[in-house]
Amino acid sequence: MSQFMETFLALRDEKRFADIIAAVPYARLMGVACGEDETGELLFSLPFAERNVGNTTLPALHGGLIGGFLENAALLHLMWNRESLEAPKIVDFSLDYLRSGKATTLYAQCEITKQGKRVAHVLIEAWQEDRRKPVAVARAHFLLSTPS
């Protein structure tokens, strides 16, 4: 566990975004990218790819894929903003779908609502062309430490 976290923190300090994504196999498979916005906050993006489609007749991004993208964003956002050598463990994840995901880039940004000793709460928002029209909003709880 800490080997991965050591690698992650080293990559973070050098802002090697592509290498961070490359370290998480499923994030790489989805085609996730990340970087910083103008205020220095992490911004995640998922360029459209055919393999991420659910309902092909619309077409719309698969709901599970949107969930995976947001959950991944929450985890990386939390790891990015902490100094711990322990990887947070997801406890629960709740997702509201507001609009269907169109065949274009999906963005996500997170906010740590609360970070306690044992548990953190993270809000996640996803949108496409217009940030005021979110595709999905989600929240997750993470366990931050293992009982000693």
């Binding site: 196999p25 994030a27 709901g63 894929l65 995976g68 959950e71 991944n72 997801i90 994840f93």
Partner: peptide, 9 residues
């Protein structure tokens, strides 16, 4: 496995 796999299934 990534939690996203669970979400999708």
């Amino acid at each position: 496995l990534h939690g996203g796999v669970i979400t999708s299934i």
